[in-house]
Design a protein around this nucleic acid. Structure first.
Lengths: 246, 246
DNA sequence: TTCGCGCATTGACACAGATCAACGGAGGGC
DNA sequence: GCCCTCCGTTGATCTGTGTCAATGCGCGAA
């Protein structure tokens, strides 16, 4: 079912090689996808959509970082998803959005009108399959996150977050993790706090704690240097399950 | 696409009317489903499957309660899913299990061998659709749970949990919530603690707190009487979003 | 009946992380 | 240059929940 790379390269709707909607489409199917797609850009800080909005497009992130957020009236908010390039927003079969979506950096989305996209899912089974695969991946990620939120200490939360970003930013190229030494943080301290179920003060203190213990070095606010990734992994509290860092 | 009720009633593989795999199957399709299904029962406390196990069946819960759990070596565990009747275990496209599955009451599963089930998904698109729908529902549930774990107080967590159980146990009959006054807890204090990211002592203290404040009454360890559901809802910290309790 | 065991409750205390408050430093506009 | 704003850091203190330990209660076995 896998098509030669040329087909993937031709898919202008999904510049992302990895985990994209069209990863296994043939040329005819790409034409169909292209017919219903368009690009849309947002600048940093902009609200992409709000909870309750009608959901008439679905989209995949081409570049930039966005967040999926859930809030309670009194101001408490929890980030429930981090949308990095190749991640998917919205869902076939749903008419309204459950979460607030915000661009935290400049963001470009590859959008599909929901209705024709759903029709297309019926016609092209492996795209439907792909959607299921992606939903299940997200579910796994959400469940890992539940373990983090429910049971990990602040320090472990920060270390886990750094590992998550390290994995996500390196993987797409097929590049092996291993000796990655610099992690670029896509979000602010505040967003991190909302992601990890902490306050910004605690996030900040844990960063300095890890720095003083030599686990990380800081280069400005958005860049972390990791002398030894293995040490960071130990701090994260993840049972590494054997197997190398992928 | 909806078939008359008789078709659903005929589906011996899915006795659950609500949210079942076969909810929209016609008779021929039901025959196909029946050909690859079998029942399996587990007694309370039994391990159904462990993390890392080969996943050669998928299943839907017919009766009883099971839990999906993730553990760290040092003994900390987090419940990442509560499996009640009509919930689905396992996933097409995955070969190993990510979580420990345990029966907390006596449980009966309706199992399908994974391989033929996957083949069937390709042939019957609306079952594939249904799988996606179920995965997305679970994802929503997991994300709501992230808000709970990351941002709610112990008291709110308990109240939210009670509301969750109230909704799940009533809804299948099409029965309107509203004046439900008794909630049967499917799990122990320990499991609740693992679900809510708390300790059993805190769970216990919050129960007595809610009792002393007249929000709930206790009838034994597994039965909660709720004089006024609206009061409980307020305690849960959920923005009720308008709309009646469903 | 009594014993023992598993589960739940309650109490005393400790501590991780929240809260409140002050300060620092980078960048942009004038 | 200066000021202002935003974001992050650091300090002092408070508090909700965890930890450790004792007690209670129901239930099955002997």
């Amino acid at each position: 079912m896998n098509k030669p790379l040329t087909a993937i390269d031709n898919c202008s709707s999904c510049p992302i090689r990895h985990r994209a909607v069209c990863a296994r489409c043939d040329d005819d199917e790409l034409v169909e996808l292209n017919a219903i797609k368009f690009y849309k850009s947002y600048s940093a800080g902009q609200t992409i959509a709000m909870r309750g909005d009608a959901l008439d497009v679905v989209a995949s992130v081409v570049s930039g970082t966005a967040t999926l957020e859930r809030a309670i009236e009194d101001g408490r908010t929890q980030l429930v998803g981090l949308l990095l390039p190749s991640d998917f927003i919205g869902r076939p079969g749903r008419t309204t959005l459950q979460y607030d979506v915000t661009a935290v950096t400049d963001v470009t989305l590859c959008c599909f009108y929901r209705k024709p996209f759903e029709d297309l899912l019926v016609r092209i089974p492996h795209v439907q399959e792909r959607m299921l695969e992606m939903a299940l991946d997200e579910l796994d990620a959400a469940r890992d996150w539940m373990l983090l939120l429910g049971r990990k200490t602040a320090r472990e939360k920060i270390a886990s977050f750094l590992m998550l970003i390290a994995k996500r930013t390196v993987h797409p190229d097929g590049h092996v993790l291993g000796n990655i030494s610099r992690i670029e943080l896509p979000i602010s301290r505040e967003a991190m706090a909302n992601f990890l179920g902490l306050t910004i003060e605690t996030v900040s203190r844990q960063f300095t704690g890890l720095r003083k213990d030599g686990v990380i070095e800081l280069d400005g606010n958005r860049s972390v240097i990791v002398p030894d990734l293995e040490t960071l992994l130990l701090e994260s509290g993840d049972d590494s399950d054997g197997g190398p860092l992928i």
